[in-house]
């Protein structure tokens, strides 16, 4: 089945199994390996991407449903070599250790900050509740989100 959508600002077409996971299409057909597979069951959020402004697990997303959508992966965030303010804040706050959860965390943060300029700690925790991190204990991740908040 031919499926066309907007991927990181560019219109793309892929001809593939309609039930293939968006995660696999991104990694295999488009070589965008910033999107990670953690659990593969929607429990960890490592595969999170933004579809039409909403955060979703790409491991649970049939590519056929991407038709006509606008998709942002971690690769679509930086402006060439210039990092996005959220990416900078994560580095500055030391919110990255093994890095596996980071793409998902950064994208979940983006969706939050696009909606709310000044989220409370509770709102930050809620927005990141679908993303597991096994290294940092979350403190530094929350600090990173607050850093972006202060800069804005």
């Amino acid at each position: 089945m031919k499926i066309s959508f907007k991927l990181n600002g560019k219109r793309v077409i892929v001809d593939t199994d309609p039930m293939k996971r968006l995660l696999d299409v991104l990694r295999e057909d488009f070589n965008l390996t910033g999107t990670k597979e953690g659990c593969g069951k929607g429990e960890c959020g490592a595969c999170s991407v933004i579809v039409d402004g909403k955060i979703v697990n790409s491991c649970l997303f049939p590519v056929c449903q991407a038709e006509g959508c606008e998709i942002t992966t971690i690769e679509g965030l930086s402006d060439g070599e210039k990092l996005h303010p959220i990416q900078k804040a994560f580095i500055e706050a030391g919110a990255v250790q093994c890095g596996f959860c980071t793409p998902g965390m950064v994208l979940a943060t983006k969706v939050l900050l696009d909606k709310k300029k000044n989220p409370t700690d509770e709102e930050i925790k809620e927005a990141l509740s679908g993303n597991l991190c096994r290294c940092t204990g979350y403190v530094k991740i929350i600090e990173a989100v607050k850093k972006v908040r202060r800069k804005k």
Binding site: P18, G42, C59, Q65
Partner: peptide, 25 residues
């Protein structure tokens, strides 16, 4: 098939492999 959040974990475990899917989304 609607949102897929219950179907894909089953597919991951090797179930539903022979199903004929109808996307209603």
């Amino acid at each position: 098939l609607a949102g897929g959040t219950d179907i894909y974990p089953l597919l991951k475990d090797g179930f539903l492999e022979n199903e004929f899917f109808c996307d209603i989304s």
